[in-house]
């Protein structure tokens, strides 16, 4: 019996999410008295694979097969299913990101398993298996029981601490034996965002709304973002107007993020906007309207003109860094 965790890689490397999700899997395995197997598909060096042992993985199944580079959803689901069967996995865990959302539902059908997506933190109980997640786009939480013998879940990023749990980890080559005709996704073009902090990975996010008045006014926010090593975000009208790239749009119809700190400048705090950021540990609002709903969702606020506030913040961050 084991807990199987799907650990994707980015150009052969793991990132914080990978360690977070392995820590989470280890937490579940402890509660169930079972072991943790990680599944890695792609070219990841042994040293990198071994790093998963630091967070509690007992075994890593290593699939090296270039055909999976097309991220064919059907073939990937078949491969994960074979690994789960191979390991007698009772719980299969994916990240609640593009790849996890694509594959987990398929795998749940193949394994006759119930699925819950976007699970936050460890299960409330493992027998019965009850997990907690957000519903109604962040407006409420639900406790959900998975009633099947095998369970598939996707894990909400930043809902569990990266926890060290040094373990002797065995790396095993694994061939799920997927036939060529199972792969029929053909990639024509790939565009990778480089040189920027990815919004979904960012621990600090600097975000601007319509109150910023126009794309020419983002210089200060970008400078602040750079100083803080932050990801940049915006409200929907800002991306609709093409003031900023669509990749930065957060909210119910954009990206859903959970950084440690979300700083909103000139954003009113519409319910659809908050749906995408309400899991942030701290929210800071700068808005000239004291009645703006964003203040109700915020931990710290300044009622004032963003254009007066931003230069002061930049100066203060520079001073803070100089004193460190």
């Amino acid at each position: 019996m084991s807990v199987l965790v799907y650990t994707e890689n980015w150009g052969g490397k793991f990132k914080k999410l990978s360690y977070e999700i392995v820590s989470f899997a280890t937490g579940i395995a402890k509660a169930m008295g079972s072991s943790v197997t990680a599944l890695s598909i792609g070219h990841v060096a042994d040293e990198e694979l071994k790093s998963l042992g630091k967070y509690g993985a007992n075994k890593v199944l290593n699939v090296q097969d270039d055909r999976f580079e097309s991220l064919d959803n059907k073939a990937l689901a078949d491969a994960v299913t074979k690994a789960a069967e191979n390991e007698g996995a009772k719980v299969v865990i994916f990240a609640h990101n593009n790849e996890g959302k694509a594959i987990a539902p398929r795998v749940s059908v193949k394994l006759n398993a119930g699925l819950v997506s976007g699970v936050m933190g460890l299960p409330v109980s493992v027998d019965p298996f009850v997990v907690r997640k957000k519903v109604f786009t962040g407006k409420a939480f639900a406790n959900i029981q998975i009633k099947t013998d095998v369970k598939v879940i996707t894990f909400a990023q930043n809902s569990y601490e990266v926890t060290e749990n040094p373990t002797d980890v065995a790396i095993e080559a694994f061939d799920p034996q997927i036939a060529d005709n199972e792969f029929n996704t053909v990639i024509k073009d790939t565009h990778l965002i480089t040189g920027k902090v990815l919004l979904t990975d960012a621990e600090i996010v600097v975000s601007g709304g319509r109150g910023m008045k126009g794309p020419e006014n983002w210089g200060g926010l970008e400078e602040l973002g750079e100083l803080l090593g932050a990801g940049m975000a915006c409200s929907r009208p800002v991306s609709d107007e093409d003031w900023r790239s669509h990749e930065e749009h957060v909210g119910q119809t954009g990206k859903i993020i959970a950084p440690n700190l979300y700083m909103a400048f000139g954003i009113s705090g519409a319910i659809q906007h908050l749906g995408g950021v309400s899991s942030s540990k701290f929210i800071v609002a700068i808005n000239k309207d004291p009645e703006a709903p964003i203040f109700e969702a915020s931990d710290y606020g300044i009622v004032g003109d963003a254009f007066k506030v931003i230069p002061q913040l930049i100066e203060a961050v520079k001073e803070m860094k100089a004193n460190k």
């Binding site: 409420a140 939480f141 639900a142 099947t148 002061q312």
Partner: peptide
């Protein structure tokens, strides 16, 4: 169905937002 919603909770109300003066943004 393979899953069952047992119960719901509304998020705990947030503590009051701590305000900082516009001229003392540091």
């Amino acid at each position: 169905a393979r899953t069952e919603f047992l119960s719901y909770e509304l998020p705990a109300p947030k503590a009051a937002c701590k305000m900082v003066d516009e001229d003392n943004a540091k």
